[in-house]
Amino acid sequence: MSSFLDLSRLHKTFPTPKGPLTVVKDFNLKVRKGEFIALIGHSGCGKSTVLSMIAGLADVSLGGIVLAGKEVNSAGPDRGVVFQSPCLLPWYTALENVLLGVEQVYYTASKLERRQIAEYYLSVVGLADAMHKRPAELSQGMRQRCGIARAFALSPKMLLLDEPFGMLDNLTKMELQDVLLDLWQRDQKTALIVTHDVDEALYLADRVVMMTDGPEATVGDIFEVKFPRPRNRLQLLEDPAYYEAREYLLHFLNERSHHRPALPADLPPPPAPKPPATGLRRIMDALAAA
């Protein structure tokens, strides 16, 4: 099987005053074309760092990323990124925000064609009536819809989603997950989503990659999600296999993701509080405090 995205021996180190800190260590993953991958792990474990490296927004310290036969070493519109906060430019309307990217990718197309592409994706995500509004006039959910439209309108080789629904309420989240799946199936894109929501991972992904806790985070386990597509949320909830899968992922996050050593038995007790000062000492302390 030839892989579409190949992450091999990926490392990320940050310099700190106490010397270099390895956040991600020896991260290996091969992704097939058209596959939907979910990357889960505890907050701060480095999953967003992995996504930033694939997006080209963060440098790779060691190892390499190959996407569709080409090494990734800078950011570019062949990877559509959906950020956690939608990152729309507030001085442009929803349509102009999407057009900004479309103009970069379809630079040979006519103005009308570009506009049609942008309008098409905005309609698909349900923003047909709000295209000419600025982000400040849109709700959180609508902004993220626009962020998704912007990413898909680039016609990228791959989609990278960094906790895209983390800031939304549950109902909006479920709606947008369906919008995302719908677009993903329509365009046959390869996608990688970073999330800490186990249900989201199981509903969206073909494979769930579990990351161990940082520092030196890496792939802890990979779970194949075998539910047939198109998936139906209600049917999933009736499937006992869904709960087994859920249990398996939660068990990993709660027990197996920690590889830090247990506390030593001879840990010294915390220092006892000082006894209250008396006499002259107390007066001196009061004066010093004043």
Binding site: L57, A75, Q104
Partner: peptide
């Protein structure tokens, strides 16, 4: 975040300046 949007879209220096930096600094 705004600069990242520009980087992901691979905007040219001129576009980066006039479509992102100038409006953001206005």
């Amino acid at each position: 975040d705004y600069l990242n949007v520009g980087r992901v879209l691979k905007l040219s220096r001129v576009k980066m300046l006039f479509k992102i930096m100038v409006p953001a600094t206005l």
